[in-house]
Amino acid sequence: MSSLLFSPYELKNITLKNRLVMAPMCMYMADNKKGFVTDWHVTHYGSRAIGQVGLIIIEATAVTPQGRISDQDLGIWDDAHIEGLKRLVDHVHELGGKIGIQLAHAGRKAMVKGPIFAPSPIPFNETMQTPEEMTEEQIFETVEAFKKGAERAKQAGFDVIEIHAAHGYLLNEFLSPLTNHRDDAFGGTPERRYEILKHVINNIKTVWEGPLFVRISANEYAKEGNSLDVFVEYGKKMKAQGIDLIDCSSGAVVPAAIDAYPGYQVRYAETIRHQATIPTGAVGLITTGNQAEEILRNERADLIFIARPFLRDPYLPRTFAKELNTSIEVPKSYERGW
């Protein structure tokens, strides 16, 4: 039986060579605290393209300076960032890979100088800065910043855009009743808490025609947080707006102890996939080829997102392919050792 993991996957106007995705991971290596790509990024992501992953999604890339998690994060808030990002994209394309970018705003979890912003003035924990509550004007300015980020991503040549609405960052903060205590057009009910994400999606789609993903935290690990049922309904809304895939992660909205075990987040991808009838990505302690194959064979998700194992093994697709007795493409220069 041929491997489903290493079969092509059609995604709007592109074809992925396989269904393995290198998930976005912050690298904290941007140049001069101004958000620019460095040689380090080119080497890091290029080596994973050589390793034959189907899609690379680069780290959370800030749409505003105050939207950075740290001042070592990549940025896309200025046209000056396009040149470095294009260099990175062109390099991955030359190596035969596909590459996406995660557009992000850190919200109350930003650790940069100056004021930080969130839906409500609630700090993440006792040691972190208290954010300023965003005005409606600031909300719409942020929506515009996501749109401008998408325009720059298009100019840089990215194949995929992922909107970061997970892990307790700004858009996730708006979605969650734990962090959004507003009683206006952007809070108070699940529908109004979704409003900013709705605007971000709609505005990005005016300038971006390619595949568009959203990453969510489908479990907030807190009693008063959103339930999976809420995210099923949000998934239906995203499908209606033309989102191509939901990347189903969890946690980091509030401090919480998480019982992490192999595949512990897969059920979120499976539930949303079937109940919202939208493609999903599974992520979280997926560490073997057989485990990834099982998820796909049983229609629990459409793509397999893997993060930390790619830090340990740039050639993880080769490792998984050998486990599954599957032959995959070999870079010519590596044939003697593949």
Rank of each mutant, 00 (worst) to 15 (best):
H199T: 05
G337K: 14
I272P: 07
N18K: 14
I139C: 06
S227H: 08
I58Y: 13
I163S: 01
I139T: 02
Q66E: 15
Y221I: 01
L170M: 09
E141F: 08
A30Y: 04
V207G: 07
G67K: 11
V200K: 09
K332M: 03
H81R: 07
I201A: 06
Q155S: 10
M111Q: 13
E224G: 12
F231C: 00
Q72N: 15
V283M: 09
K223S: 13
Q275R: 12
E224C: 00
Q52E: 13
L20F: 05
I116E: 02
S2N: 12
H199K: 15
K237A: 13
T135N: 01
A106V: 11
T206Y: 00
D183C: 03
H91G: 01
K33G: 14
P255T: 06
L303W: 08
H81V: 05
G337W: 08
G188H: 10
Y9C: 10
I278H: 08
H181E: 08
Q102L: 09
I161R: 08
H81Y: 01
E162G: 03
M238G: 06
N18G: 14
E133V: 10
N298K: 15
E294W: 10
A80Y: 03
G168V: 08
C248P: 04
P279Q: 05
D247T: 07
E133G: 10
S70Q: 09
I243Y: 00
M128K: 12
G281F: 09
T43Q: 14
Y268S: 00
A292M: 11
E10W: 03
D313A: 10
S7H: 02
E293W: 05
A80C: 13
V253S: 05
R267H: 15
E151M: 12
A30D: 05
E220S: 00
